[in-house]
Simulated assay, not measured.
Amino acid sequence: MAKRDYYDVLGVDKGASAAEIKKAFRRVAMKFHPDRNPEGADAEDKFKEAQEAYEILGDDDKKAAYDRFGHAGVDGNSGGGQRGGGGGFGDVFGDVFGDIFGGGGGRGGPARGSDLRYDLQLDLEDAVRGKTVQIDVPTMTTCDPCDGSGARRGSSPVTCTTCNGAGQVRMSQGFFSVQQACPQCRGRGQMISDPCGSCHGQGVIEEQKTLSVKIPAGVDTGDRIRLGGKGEAGPQGGPPGDLYVQMVVRDHPIFVRDDANLHCEVPISFAQAALGGELEVPTLSGKVKLKIPAETQSSKLFRLRGKGVAPVRGGGVGDLLCRVVLETPVNLSSEQRELLKKFEESLAGKSKHSPRSSNWFDGVKKFFDNLTS
C-alpha cells in the first residue's frame, strides 16, 4: 500500500513552520494514541504513521530531502515506529511530549558539560581600548588517567542491565506510554563497574584553567564573550560546555559612561566663570584645552566631539560632555573676606550684574503681592 503524503498525515501545508508541524503532530498523536483508543483497530497504525511523518518533517535535512524527492528521498531514514534506527519512537515522542511528562525521553550518550560564567572586572580605559587578559577559571576538566571514560585504566564501562544499553526505558503515565532516560545509567546505556581512582567514575576532575581572553574595544558592563568548549567537561567523556565571560566595568574617578558618550564635572572658580579663560581637561586620549567664555554660569554643559567611546557593536564615536561646576572658595583670610565684601557692595542695587537673581526676586515679590491682594 502506497504511503500517504506526510503533510496530509499531519494536516499541514507544505509551507508550515517547525512550530506548526510540531503542534499538528501533538494533536494527531493524542487523537490516535493506542492507549486512548484500545478498541480502535487502526488507531495504532495511524499513530505510527503520524510518528513517521513527524520524524521526517520535524528534521530540517530530512524535510528538505522529502520536499525535493518525496518518499524516495527519505527511504530508510524513518524509524517506522521501531526502536533504534534514525531517531525512533523515544526521540520523536520525547521531544514533543517532554513538557507534559516533566522532561523528554533522553537520547542516550554522555551528557554535555555545564556552561560557566566568569565576571571580568575591567577599568574603563581597558574597556574602551580593548585588551587581552589572562583569567583563572575553576572548572571540571577531563580526567587524564581514564581519558574521561570514568573507568579505571585497563577496564571499560559495561552495558547497563536496566535498559540493556538502550539508554531509555518505557514509562506509562495515564493514557500515554513514553520512553524516558534510564534512571540507572542516566541515558548513557553504560555503567562503570571499576571506577577510576582519580575521578571516582565521573570522568572529570576539578582544577583551575588559565585562559587568554581577547577583549574587543568598546565593551561595556553587561557585554559578554562566549568561549565555545571552555566550560566544564562532560561526565564520562561528554562534550564540554561553554564559558561566558561577563564584562563588569569599574566606576571611574573622573568619567561616567553613557553608551558612546562620557560625562565629567569640571570645577571652576568664581573668577574663571566671570572673566572666562582656558582650562586643561582630561580625556581618554590625553589632555585638551577647554575654552570657558566670560560670564559662564554654573552647570553649563560643554561638548567635546569625538572624545567619547566607539561602541563595540559599531556606530560613531561618542562625545565628552563636560559640566562646569562653580566652586565656592573656602578657608578665606580676613583680607580676602574684606575684598569680597567690597566687591559685593559694589554690585548692590545693580540688577544688570545678576539678571537671574533680579528676575527671581521680582517673581517672589509678585507672588506675595498676589497672596495679599
Rank of each mutant, 00 (worst) to 15 (best):
K365D: 14
R36F: 12
R152I: 00
T283P: 05
A274R: 13
G102F: 10
C264E: 08
E327C: 00
R117D: 15
D75C: 03
A43G: 04
G85W: 13
G84P: 11
G103Y: 08
G90D: 06
S357D: 11
Q208N: 12
A18G: 12
G102H: 09
E49S: 08
N164W: 05
G11N: 05
Y66N: 04
K291S: 13
T142V: 14
D319T: 00
M30E: 13
V169H: 06
L262E: 02
G102W: 08
Q168N: 09
Q184M: 09
D67I: 03
P282D: 04
Y118D: 10
M191A: 13
D144S: 06
R337N: 07
G308S: 00
C160H: 11
G167A: 09
G318C: 05
E20T: 02
P38F: 12
R170I: 04
N77W: 09
R224S: 15
Q272D: 11
H71W: 15
D91Q: 15
Y66A: 06
E55G: 09
S193Q: 14
R27T: 13
P311N: 07
R188V: 12
T132Q: 08
G130C: 09
A217Y: 09
P282S: 04
K131M: 01
V245C: 15
K62T: 06
A151V: 01
E125W: 12
G58M: 08
G231M: 06
C322P: 03
D242H: 14
C160F: 07
K287W: 00
A181V: 00
M1N: 12
T162P: 00
S156D: 14
Q134N: 14
S354I: 10
G90W: 10
A348D: 03
V312F: 03
F176W: 02
S351A: 15
G229W: 08
L321P: 04
Q51T: 05
P235E: 12
R4C: 07
V28T: 08
E206A: 14
A271C: 02
I21G: 01
V219G: 06
V309P: 06
V137Q: 01
G318M: 02
E345L: 13
